[in-house]
Design a protein around this nucleic acid. Sequence first.
DNA 1: CATGAATGAGACTTCATTCAT
DNA 2: CATGAATGAAGTCTCATTCAT
Lengths: 200, 200, 200, 200
Amino acid sequence: MQDSSSRVKKKKEEIIRAAIQVFSSKGYHNTRMEEIAAAAGIGKGTIYEYFDSKLQLFQEMLKNSLQIYYKNLDGREMKNLSVAEKIYMLMEAHFRFCRENKELTRIVFWETGTIDEELKEWVYAMRDEKEKRMQEIITEGISRGEIRNLDPRLVTLVVIGILGATWIPLALEKWEIDPAFLAKQFTDILVNGIKKEKLV
Amino acid sequence: MQDSSSRVKKKKEEIIRAAIQVFSSKGYHNTRMEEIAAAAGIGKGTIYEYFDSKLQLFQEMLKNSLQIYYKNLDGREMKNLSVAEKIYMLMEAHFRFCRENKELTRIVFWETGTIDEELKEWVYAMRDEKEKRMQEIITEGISRGEIRNLDPRLVTLVVIGILGATWIPLALEKWEIDPAFLAKQFTDILVNGIKKEKLV
Amino acid sequence: MQDSSSRVKKKKEEIIRAAIQVFSSKGYHNTRMEEIAAAAGIGKGTIYEYFDSKLQLFQEMLKNSLQIYYKNLDGREMKNLSVAEKIYMLMEAHFRFCRENKELTRIVFWETGTIDEELKEWVYAMRDEKEKRMQEIITEGISRGEIRNLDPRLVTLVVIGILGATWIPLALEKWEIDPAFLAKQFTDILVNGIKKEKLV
Amino acid sequence: MQDSSSRVKKKKEEIIRAAIQVFSSKGYHNTRMEEIAAAAGIGKGTIYEYFDSKLQLFQEMLKNSLQIYYKNLDGREMKNLSVAEKIYMLMEAHFRFCRENKELTRIVFWETGTIDEELKEWVYAMRDEKEKRMQEIITEGISRGEIRNLDPRLVTLVVIGILGATWIPLALEKWEIDPAFLAKQFTDILVNGIKKEKLV
DNA sequence: CATGAATGAGACTTCATTCAT
DNA sequence: CATGAATGAAGTCTCATTCAT
């Protein structure tokens, strides 16, 4: 039972891997099930043994990818860090992910139009949670006196925006730039802007 | 001649208006020609009197929308303004556009995947030009001593990012916020970050 | 009354002339009503003032063409001629017609697939009558002792065949050959055979 | 490999068989893909697994049919025969084919309008070759002294004409006549002419 | 379990025909 | 009468999904 269950899980992962590859380069609507099957080295019909439909496969793959992405952001211990350090770590993790997982990145940031209501809710919830956590970081920074008294949502939008604008050159073009450097620069721009007291 | 030409132009505009409506809410692939025809209050075949194909209609509509958007950004005289003022005006124009043209906004920022090579070049050229103009603003600011010695591309990405992150709540959700206020806040965050000399 | 009737007839003839032109070069199914209208220098809708439908226009045109063709064959007085002379005259008339009316020729010999049952009957009747008249010539020749005791139908098929095989190079290619010479040769072959030495 | 390839070939043949049936009775333009599918006892989409388009199916079918027809004419050994005997054999083969393969005959002699440039060349080349071989027979007959000094092209046109005029009653009507008898008669007419009394 | 041949719903597009001007 | 813009029926083709092997 354990055995059969894990074998199934393995096969699903293989298919999802192939799906990421094809979906990310051609988009949902221009991808044919046959192409995914070919990329996975299996027969067309086999996909339907593991997924109900094209849409369900796409959504499972998207969920999967988002989990990997968000897990990547969450991975580190950030308890005792300053706001600047937290933002830096978030950005660095994002940029590195984009550079190292171009296909996943495209999936995560692109085709969010192709999702049905149920998944949409889940995706939005995930996004919201991410934003909420970031807002908490900002809010905490304000209350700790590290940050000027700004609307946390706006600051969050700036951070989200930076991430959203930067994945494109990183994942679509071949912008070979050090994620750490990039994060440092953006943090510098942002933090010196939102920091309450400027060092003289 | 004048007459017939302008009648055709008018009809094309009507169809494009309907196309914006439907495409922006359902996306390219989930939109059927029949729906656009219905939205335009005409018969299915009539669209083909004015456009060669679904793709061509989409592309003409996209080009149209982008022109309106970019024209909106360009509209103002900005010669003798400071960098901060220029950024403010840009943002304010963008936010107001997003609030007032939700459908157009979705078109402009969303479905850029569904474009053939020829149009892709045009779209990218337009985007690049926008980025370039922004970089020039930044670069000028640096040389004028208004801005710290930062990589202009990175600063540009922050601005683009802010615009790109903010259209979503403005055009998809009903975020009723004053564009001028929003622009002021973001400019404040950004400019105080990139400003060379900090007030003591 | 007379006036209006003759004006209508004139217009119909103009349209038919245009129809012959277009149909003969593109065939029935690849011809659009708009093309015929353009060739006639009138509006698309005007055709429908004079003809009920595309099919009816085609059929009227075909009938017209066939009448011209058959009239051309019939034109001469052949009472007191020998069989050989009659065959010669028939062939000569046919060949000349083909050379001088290439479009009509293509219509008459080509698209006979595109005719509905009613017209089909008419066309077949016309053909049959032509064959019958030829058979009569042959039969008369036999009874007169000019021709061997052959099955008139077979001889007729040979003549029909010669006409049917020869219109192609004459009307489709540019075979510039004298119709009289051609008719003379074929008549010679048919009447005398191709064998070199006749057994005494 | 062999297996799958031969299965595909078999299926294509089945579809072509159905296509011959439907195309030959309704013509290219009046035939719907669905009808061919129905005639083949398969679904509409299945045809597209084996042929790219309606046109391609038609052309492959036509090529196929022409090959069968021409192969049928070529089949026999004719080395040491007289011209008369060669013509007889050719005609007999043609007539028998028309009687036994009415549908194929209609295809071969009818719809040659619906072919694109590439295939047109092939069809014309095939036709030309057939005419050329016939001309060679005639030319040889002349040089051997069996035939009068006539233009071989004209004699060829007579033979082609006989074949072209005779397939119609054989394949469209139900002319139940012995092909051998028919060929004998036509050969007799052609070789000896129709004139009763030969001048000594 | 795996497969891929078969399927048919569904979308685009054409063009004969209509009808308001 | 003449027109051509508008129409929608009809036909081609695609591709997600099924199911017999």
